[in-house]
């Protein structure tokens, strides 16, 4: 599971005012920085430290992540649909990598 691959599950269509559930997951080892390797030295920390979800440029959900979060972090949240638009999901890695994925929502 070396590569980090983001996955999201959002409905393709919804009605205005409906509360929809959004599920997100990124494959990531989430190395806490507290474990020791076989050589007795600490394995350097590497985790996803931040996740944000935006809808049409407006932030709808954000979380700062700490080392206690398990590997392959799964986040689920809800949103009341204001209208059609596009989601942008962003994960920030300790090593500076940023993983982004987008998803469109239609009304109907």
């Amino acid at each position: 599971m070396a590569k980090s691959k983001p996955r999201v599950k959002v409905p393709k269509t919804a009605t205005v005012g409906e509360v929809i559930t959004i599920k997100t997951l990124i494959s990531h080892k989430m190395e806490s920085g507290l474990r020791k390797g076989k050589d007795g030295n600490l394995i350097p920390r590497q985790i996803i430290n931040k996740f944000t979800a935006e809808f049409e440029g407006q932030q709808i959900f954000a979380v700062d992540i700490d080392p206690a979060i398990s590997a392959n972090p799964f986040l689920e949240f809800t949103m009341k649909v204001p209208g059609p638009g596009e989601f942008t999901f962003t994960w920030v890695d300790d090593d500076g990598s940023v993983y982004t994925t987008k998803s469109k929502l239609k009304i109907g």
Binding site: K23, L25, N72
Partner: peptide, 12 residues
């Protein structure tokens, strides 16, 4: 299938 953590491996 989205909740099922095994799909991380299946995708790989």
């Amino acid at each position: 299938d989205f909740d099922n953590p095994a799909y991380i491996w299946v995708d790989a």
